[in-house]
C-alpha cells in the first residue's frame, strides 16, 4: 500500500461520506443522479464478489463493506425515504443508464484476463465504473447551479481516480511483481478524463470563491 493508493481510497471514502452527510442531515438529494448511484451499487456488487472467498487484508474487507453498505443505503434513501425521495430531480435525471450496462457486459465477455465468472464480473465492474459518472455529469450540466456538497462529491470522486493513476505508475516502478494491467489502466484513464471539464469549472469556482456554475 503506497501513499497515493491510500490517498485515493480516502478521497473515495470522503466522497461517499459527503454524499451521505448531505442526504442524512439536509434530508435532500437534489442534484444527485439516482442513475449514477444505481450504477455504482452495481459496480461494487459485481467487483466485490470475492469479499467472503478471498482474504487480502482487514483494510480491504472493511473498505469493501463500507462501499457496499454506503452505496446501497444511498439508494435506499433516494428511493424509499419519505422526505429525501421528494427532493430527487427525477425529470432532469433522464440519462438512459441501462444502455451503459449491456455494452460493458459484452466488452467484459470479450476482453478480460481470464474467462471465469468472477473475473468477467470483475472486468465488467471496471468498465462500468469508467462510465458510471456520466448520468451525474449530465444532471449537473442541466441544473447548472451546483450546490457546494454536490460539487465536492463529484470533485472528490475525480480526485480518487486521478490518485489511482499515480498509484499505478508508482506500483509499476516500485513493485517487482506488479505487471501491466491494460484493462484497469485504460478504463481508469478514460474515467479520469471524463472529469476534466468538470474539474476546470470546479477549480475556477473555488479560486474565484463563487458558486459552481456549469455552461449550458
Amino acid at each position: 500500500m503506497n501513499i497515493f493508493r491510500l490517498a485515493g481510497d480516502m478521497t473515495h471514502l470522503m466522497s461517499v461520506l459527503v454524499l451521505l452527510l448531505k442526504i442524512h442531515t439536509i434530508k435532500s438529494c437534489a442534484g444527485i443522479s439516482l442513475k449514477t448511484q444505481e450504477l455504482y451499487a452495481l459496480v461494487f456488487a459485481a467487483r466485490y464478489l470475492d469479499i467472503f472467498t478471498h482474504y487480502y487484508s482487514l483494510y480491504n474487507t472493511v473498505m469493501k463493506l463500507i462501499f457496499l453498505g454506503s452505496s446501497f443505503s444511498i439508494l435506499w434513501y433516494m428511493k424509499r425515504h419519505k422526505v429525501v425521495r421528494r427532493s430527487y430531480d427525477k425529470d432532469q435525471d433522464t440519462f438512459r443508464h441501462h444502455f451503459l450496462v449491456l455494452p460493458c457486459l459484452v466488452l467484459a465477455l470479450l476482453i478480460n484476463e481470464k474467462f471465469t465468472f468472477k473475473e468477467v464480473m470483475w472486468t465488467f465492474s471496471i468498465y462500468l465504473e469508467a462510465v458510471a459518472i456520466l448520468p451525474q455529469l449530465v444532471l449537473l450540466q442541466r441544473t447548472r447551479n451546483v450546490d457546494n456538497l454536490t460539487g465536492q462529491y463529484v470533485f472528490l470522486l475525480g480526485a480518487y481516480r486521478g490518485l489511482y493513476i499515480i498509484n499505478w505508475i508508482y506500483r509499476y516502478f516500485a513493485e517487482p511483481t506488479y505487471s501491466t494491467h491494460w484493462i484497469t489502466w485504460i478504463s481508469g484513464l478514460l474515467q479520469t478524463l471524463l472529469y476534466a471539464d468538470f474539474f476546470y469549472y470546479y477549480i475556477n469556482s473555488v479560486k474565484n470563491n463563487v458558486r459552481l456554475q456549469l455552461p449550458a
Partner: peptide, 10 residues
C-alpha cells in the same frame, strides 16, 4: 499472481 495484484485494489 499478477491477477491478484490488480484485484487487491478497491
Amino acid at each position: 499472481s499478477s491477477q491478484q495484484a490488480s484485484h487487491d485494489e478497491l
